[in-house]
Amino acid sequence: MRISMDLELQDTPGQLIYVLTPVSDLGGNVMSVVHHHDKKTFRNTVPVSVIFDVEEHKLEELQKRLEKNGVTVVRIGKMRLRARTHILLIGHIIHTDLRHTIDEIDGTGFAEVQDLSLSMPAIDGPSSAVVTIMATGNEELKKAVEILKDIAQRKDLLVIVPIDESGISGGLSNAE
């Protein structure tokens, strides 16, 4: 389950480790961390927003460990990925480019690459891939698709999107 947490950390270097360690100890995977240095509190703490994936039943334990580490948990949000789309890429797809693209989309916090299939029929011929992206809503999904398109076009890949994404009736298809 994807979680967004608003935390408060002491405004001294090295505090983030008190957040990242318990998350990874519980098998979680951090997608993004944003420090709001400009919103320092009167308690001399800095608000931090963290987005990560963790199994839902470990959430309570995580909260305990964070508080034991002196981290204030202000808000816990469970993000649901409602919107989904598939995108077809054709061209000289290089694995490292794809990895980078996936990281960039996962790093948004509001979208993730749920699935990717790659087909490379010949070493020197073009390959193709289908990327499945999920996001918290249609607007977020559009932003994630733009990120992918941007990268793909720079790499001279042909990008084929579903018809409804830009269609006359508008709107991306929602996941079931």
Binding site: I90, G125, S127
Partner: peptide, 10 residues
């Protein structure tokens, strides 16, 4: 530029 295996993936 469309390839047969891209169509299969789709």
């Amino acid at each position: 530029r469309i390839t047969q295996d891209a169509l299969q993936l789709a």
